[in-house]
């Protein structure tokens, strides 16, 4: 399959890319990792007249930590994130990066592309929401910072204006008494998950929860904030029963549709499973335990 013919431009800076995209309007698309865009172009569901390549722009894929804030460049690839020391420092980032699709897609796909695509089944959005991430954007003249919750407007819809691009994603390094996990369940490696949960707990002591952030992926048009589940945990002792009650509450928050990835009822049950496991792993990690988890699928559970 061939995409329709298009003109190609290799941008030297993000400002230049933004300027060209703002002039071209709907006719143009930016190219980051291309792992969603290229298949759409091959199916001719997307037919840009101009593709503005961001891949030669220097410094866009750096991952660095400054004063307790991790700044991830928009062009950082999933594989690069999975291998980075900073992801080891914030295990939920590693859980996500190391399990997205398959090794080949992780080599190319980028975090900025994933967030800007705003696919309801994307992996990064729930994870970054659980970490209260901010998105730094760039147009031809200036930058602005947007809380990720405000950035994600609807399915495939973000707060990005015409000619505005993601420059970086920033998250605070969680406190020592914090632990998080991302659990996604999918049918096989190369597909989107049927349901996922991103959990980040901050503990008051070994067993009492001070703060909980829980976001559900794939079961709504945007990642769903499981507020009732969080309320079950906040200020409470995290017993087995408490964790089960929170997982039940999260199940109620899910609004999945039946599709080839499972029936709505099935996905609701999956939500309970991924939230429960996410809470258990987060709690163990908050106590300093090393726990390795990533996306789950048949043969890898």
């Amino acid at each position: 399959m061939y995409p329709a013919a298009f003109r190609y431009y290799r941008a030297a800076t993000l400002e230049e890319a933004a300027s060209i995209l703002s002039q071209a309007g709907d006719e143009a698309r930016p190219l980051a990792g291309g792992q969603s865009l290229i298949p759409l172009m091959k199916l001719r569901l997307v037919r840009p007249a101009l593709l503005v390549d961001l891949n030669s722009i220097p410094g866009l894929s750096s991952i660095k930590s400054e004063q307790g804030v991790v700044r991830i460049g928009a062009l950082a690839r999933h594989a690069q994130l999975a291998d980075s020391e900073l992801s080891q420092l914030i295990p939920i980032l590693h859980d996500c990066a190391a399990g997205i699709a398959d090794a080949q897609v992780r080599s190319r796909g980028t975090i900025g592309g994933s967030l800007a695509e705003a696919d309801p089944s994307g992996d990064w959005a729930p994870v970054m929401l659980a970490l209260s991430a901010e998105v730094r954007t760039q147009n031809s003249k200036q930058q602005r910072t947007i809380a990720l919750g405000d950035f994600l407007k609807d399915a495939y819809t973000t707060a990005l204006a015409n000619g505005e691009l993601v420059r970086e994603v920033a998250v605070k390094v969680p406190a020592k008494n914090s632990g998080g996990a991302y659990i996604a369940f999918k049918r096989c490696a190369s597909v989107y998950a049927s349901a996922s949960a991103a959990v980040q707990l901050t503990m008051a002591d070994r067993s009492t929860c001070e703060q909980a952030h829980i976001y559900l992926g794939c079961v709504g048009l945007v990642p769903l904030h499981a507020t009732a589940a969080e309320a079950e945990l906040r200020g409470r002792e995290l017993t087995k029963e408490r964790i089960s009650a929170a997982a039940e509450a999260a199940m109620e928050a899910a609004a999945p549709h039946s599709d080839m990835r499972g029936s709505a009822e099935y996905k609701k049950v999956l939500v309970k499973h991924v939230v429960k496991k996410g809470l258990e792993v987060s709690l163990r990690r908050s106590r300093g335990e090393q726990v390795e988890v990533s996306h789950e699928y048949v043969g890898r559970i």
Partner: peptide, 21 residues
């Protein structure tokens, strides 16, 4: 369609699906 991996090659040492590049 970027699913099966038959077209996998190495690009600067990283595996990629050459039908999606």
């Amino acid at each position: 369609t970027s699913y099966c991996g038959a077209c996998t090659v190495l690009l600067n040492g990283e595996p990629v699906k050459s039908c999606t590049l």
